[in-house]
């Protein structure tokens, strides 16, 4: 399958700003999915995109698959119902830092704890972009936003540490300056059973860069490339595969229990 068959072209061009990192994530995602469909590893009719609210959550509306654009912070709770009710569905959750870590923080840690079998792609652009650039739970300390005009007094969340602490078995961090690596990460996440979390450091030139001395999308990607490393280097953000383990996914445990109980009922 060609990735072009997965785009709702009648909706293009999309609503994202020039140089938005979410566009690169959409680009990489549809190519990764097309490769999986082409290889017969996934069925497009059984692949579902679920998202919350925010710029990143608009992406499913451009992809020609079943998709559910839900409420702010709650896509993982909706995905829990979808996956348990039909375990044959392959579910990809598209979310952002505000959606996943602020209003949806509780759903995030519980989905990780349960080991819900979903691929979470979190576009982490350090800001609330859709509403015009307010501080988020991942905004760096000291950074400017429309609600931290004197600099952010709060320390940020490390989303990977957060979900690993909650039990997520497969966790990676990449950036929109690493699209090739991100595509391979999405492939791995789709192959893993259980909760896969990809933290994608992304750029919001309009509402973050502009207020924090990063004047263009290119400068922002330059920053992401220079300040990240696949090795533990002082002063740099660690990217790469941070955890890759196996743990029985939630739906399997639930459905084994159902088999056991309903089998007993029929037998007894």
């Amino acid at each position: 399958m060609n990735w072009r068959d997965l785009i709702r072209w009648e909706r293009m061009p999309h609503i994202l700003c020039p140089g938005c990192g979410n566009g690169t994530i959409l680009n990489v995602l549809v190519r990764a999915l097309a490769e999986k469909f082409e290889a017969g590893e996934l069925d497009p009719d059984r692949t579902v995109l679920v998202s919350g609210i925010g710029c990143s959550s608009r992406l499913p509306g451009y992809v020609r698959l079943d998709s559910l654009h839900t409420t702010h912070g709650r896509p993982l709770a909706f995905a829990t119902g979808l996956k348990l009710a039909n375990p044959d569905l392959e579910i990809i959750v598209l979310t952002g830092d505000g959606d996943a870590a602020a209003i949806g923080g509780n759903h995030l840690i519980h989905a990780a704890r349960r080991n819900l079998d979903v691929t979470v792609i979190c576009s982490n652009n350090l800001i609330y972009g859709m509403t015009g650039g307010q501080v988020s739970p991942t905004t760096p300390e000291g950074a400017k936003s429309t609600t931290t005009p004197y600099g952010n007094p709060e320390p940020p969340f490390d989303l990977c540490e957060l979900v690993m602490g909650a039990g997520a078995p497969h966790v990676e961090r990449w950036t929109t300056a690493h699209p090739q690596q991100l595509k391979r990460a999405i492939h791995r996440a789709l192959e893993r059973d259980g909760f896969s979390f990809i933290d994608v450091l992304s750029q919001c030139p309009t509402n973050y860069g502009r207020r924090n001395d990063l004047k263009s999308p290119r400068e922002m990607l330059e920053w992401l490339r220079e300040n990240t490393s696949t090795k533990d280097e002082p002063g740099k953000i660690r990217i790469g595969i941070l955890r890759d383990e196996e743990r029985k996914p939630f739906h399997e445990r639930v459905h084994e229990l159902i088999e056991e109980v309903s089998g007993d009922e029929e037998g007894g």
Binding site: T71, R74, A77, L84, V254, H255
Partner: peptide, 22 residues
């Protein structure tokens, strides 16, 4: 399937998700 969610917001979200799964 029975699932106890982390709150009532998530509960109705999961119910709606299940409904879209048919």
């Amino acid at each position: 399937v029975y699932v106890q969610m982390e709150d009532e917001i998530g509960s109705l979200a999961a119910v709606i998700g299940a409904s879209w799964a048919g």
